[in-house]
Design a protein around this nucleic acid. Structure first.
Lengths: 325, 325
DNA sequence: TTGTAGGCGTTATCAT
DNA sequence: ATGATAACGCCTACAA
């Protein structure tokens, strides 16, 4: 295992000089050259543990996500990675499984490992970030709003719900159901609010039996769709407010015979196994949300950022059908 | 920021004693109690950077994957996580995007961060593990065989290809095509070999025009299926040798009118948007592969493991249709 | 510009 | 069983 002192010995300089070369401080060209030669010859790379102990922060950032199996979040992760790598940071992905304790666990590790910063899509209620912000750690929240005074990158969820519903109205549908997430989930509620607002604005009722609170996963979408299709007065269109319930809804619908309900989905379906030309998609581009969040975090780590800000991640026009991926 | 010396001061002992309590060494009960009280009162958690500098290894393990957006690998990651957490280790997920250089980058970081071990599904040719094994780091390879003398958890890929093909033969199909990955990809080749072996064993030809080397992603499956369906003599059954090309194949097939080819897929389709009762699935259970790999890694980290071994991850009987997820 | 030396927070060795 | 202390590898005053 080669250390900085080995490099120093080989180059005939002090460890301080080696360190300076490695960190682009002022060193005379000839010595710098000698050091670099020694570095390549030995294949030396600095011990990051020692470096981060000394500097009081590492070159790692934590990306804390509630569900790593959801393509929305993996795509977001790709965006974060792209920015981080060009900034010389490495991304550490942590999966909380929507569990507040696991989330605490990972946030604590990020802290104890002196990580440079954290990007988190929070599970559960807010307030958990106090310890991190108190320690002046760089923190960016994505996808789900919190009350804390930190940078946040969010969708305008009510607007998403409204626009997706409007697209269904524009197609002439009048009895439009909404499948959303659990009552305690703010994004799910906001998107459902948008659905309600759009219907109301169009002078239509938004009866309770057309709003289904599912579990926001594939099986939730299946169950909700089954229930809606079996109703006395089935809807002629359905809005699924996230990608997973959209998958479930589509799956049930594909088995249906006779007149099919029109489906609208807020989200993307990269692994659709059927052509979905007849489905409205309001694509969210989570990758760009990741890019935005990472850029924000990097500037905060570098101390270039001002007061905490909330960025509303723009989304695109509603599309009919999905281009693959 | 509270340090071990703060705890020591509050408990009226030396830092050495605090450290001993934290690491379950022998300490008199009363002093231990005092220390624990001080720890909770201050909310102290050890600085992991300092700890790992001293101990020469951290409590992190790296999971280096070629494509974090592929559900196969996210599911594998979940398995690794489950074992790691109960062993007191935290998982760091790294995405190489099938790029050898990026892989090198992350493996180097794992080394420089003194991580306790690495689980890697290798991108590109073998030999890249030399540095890690030389340094006696704990390493487990998953999914893709390498020549290095390290623990490996693999499928018997040729057997997978054979069994999946046999299932199609059992259904009476005779003209069976195979859509697999690029020529340089060993797992893709091995599964195709299995396809060929099954056909040969059944006394059937395995002509070149029935074997398509696709790019092993969704669009590859689409392109391959398009080509096969447009052929002068289209197959009456198609084997897709991984989940992503399976998705693409299914997508094209779902648009097809008239007599549909029977599809067999090696892999799972957690996000299928259609009912796929008429598709053969040979499910791989990547989560269990992750469990196996992580158990192996943990025992190696603890020094309990013997010589490097290759574990063949069992798979299940071919299923007709998929139960969701 | 370069070198010397102290310290980041923890654990392990060596006395007691 | 407990405490003082050195060491892990690096960076950065400070001195020269």
């Amino acid at each position: 295992m080669t250390r900085i002192k080995d490099v120093a010995a080989l180059a005939g300089v002090s460890t301080a000089t080696v360190s300076r070369v490695l960190n682009d401080k002022t060193v005379s060209p000839d010595l710098a050259a000698a050091v670099r030669r020694a570095v390549t010859e030995l294949g030396y790379t600095p011990n990051r543990t020692a470096r981060s102990l000394r500097r009081q922060h590492s070159e790692l950032i934590a990306l804390v996500l509630p569900d790593i199996e959801n393509p929305f979040f993996t795509s977001l992760a790709r965006g974060v990675e792209d920015v981080a790598r060009t900034a010389g940071l490495s991304v550490v992905l942590c999966n909380t499984d929507e569990d507040v304790e696991t989330q605490e666990h990972y946030l604590r590790i990020a802290d104890d490992e002196n990580m440079a910063g954290v990007i988190v899509a929070p599970a559960g209620p807010s307030g958990f970030l106090a310890r991190l912000t108190e320690r002046h750690r760089a923190v960016v929240v994505v996808d789900r709003a919190v009350a804390d005074d930190v940078d946040q990158v969010l969708f305008d969820n009510e607007d998403l719900g409204r626009r997706a519903t409007q697209a269904l109205l524009d197609r002439g549908h009048r009895r439009i159901a909404c499948v959303t997430g659990p009552r305690e989930t703010p994004t799910a509620e906001a998107r459902a609010d948008g659905w309600r607002a759009a219907l109301t604005a169009a002078g239509l009722p938004a009866p309770d039996d057309l709003l289904v609170h599912a579990n926001y996963r594939v099986d939730g979408g299946e169950a909700a769709m089954t229930r809606l299709l079996a109703a006395a007065e089935p809807p002629d269109a359905v809005l699924a407010t996230n990608n997973l319930v959209g998958v479930g809804a589509l799956r049930m619908l594909s088995a249906e015979r006779g007149p099919r309900a029109q489906l609208g989905i807020i989200g993307d379906l990269p692994f659709a196994t059927s052509h979905i030309d007849d489905t409205f998609l309001l694509r969210l581009h989570p990758r760009e949300m990741g890019l935005t969040a990472a850029r924000l975090l990097v500037s905060r780590i570098r101390g270039e950022a001002g007061p905490a800000q909330r960025v509303v991640q723009p989304s695109r026009p509603v599309l009919l059908g999905a281009s693959p991926s």
